[in-house]
Computed example of a mutant assay.
Amino acid sequence: MTIRLMLLCAPVPSGRETRFADGPLDERAVQQARAAAGALPATGVRYTAPSQRCRQTAQALGWDAAVEPALCDIGVGSWHGRTLDEVAASDPAGLAAWMTHPGAAPHGGETVADVCTRVAAWLDTLQGESGPVTAVVEQAVTRAAVVSVLGAPHASFWRIDIPPLTAVHFTGRAGRWNLRLGAAMSAGA
């Protein structure tokens, strides 16, 4: 049986400095999620990461989604609550190490290699499923899934850009995953 997995990156609130922290969606982000609902599969198994942002996105989509702890965002330890600029100013060497060495955790939290391993293990648990599986996740989880599915080095994690409310598709069968890129053009398009 083939699994059709879609990871949907949660939107981010506008008008605020981005922080290494979870927080509620603003009304603009909720409206964007509601607008995306019609383009998503109507059936299948649905998950959400445990963050408030992901749970609110699933709610805005009208989903009754199971919270999956394995889909949590990358843990940033002592950097939690700080902006990227604040971390860059106070710990430039630590930030550089974290973004270039997948085994580095200068913040005392999770390494890039750790999150890639965690997400790969979650993908393995889906092998008993079939049909559509959809999850609202943080960008780091989608990056880790792409790295895992492609068998890419963990160092490629930071080279993957995934905008908010972007869907990334995978197919899985017999213990093997594929990244599915692009969408078929409709006739007359």
Rank of each mutant, 00 (worst) to 15 (best):
Q31T: 12
E129F: 12
R82N: 05
I3A: 12
E110V: 00
D64W: 13
A120Y: 02
E68M: 03
A120S: 13
L179W: 14
R53P: 06
Y47W: 05
A89N: 01
W79L: 10
W98P: 10
F170Y: 05
A145H: 05
Q139P: 06
A152H: 08
A144F: 06
A187H: 15
A89P: 02
E129N: 14
I74G: 11
R34C: 11
R16T: 14
A183C: 05
R143N: 12
Y47G: 01
L40E: 07
D114Q: 12
Q56K: 10
A58Y: 14
N178L: 09
V168R: 02
A88T: 02
A152Y: 04
R4N: 09
G172I: 07
A65D: 08
I162Q: 03
T125M: 03
P164V: 06
I74T: 13
A145D: 11
S14N: 01
A121Y: 02
A96L: 00
G128T: 13
D91H: 06
C9M: 06
R4M: 00
S130D: 15
A135W: 08
I160E: 12
Q59I: 03
R143P: 12
E68D: 02
G182D: 11
A96F: 00
A49Q: 10
S78K: 11
S148D: 10
W79P: 03
H80Q: 13
L25F: 08
A93G: 04
G94I: 06
A10E: 09
Q59C: 03
L126Y: 06
E138M: 15
W63H: 09
P69K: 03
R143I: 02
G175D: 10
G44R: 06
R118D: 04
L40D: 10
T134I: 09
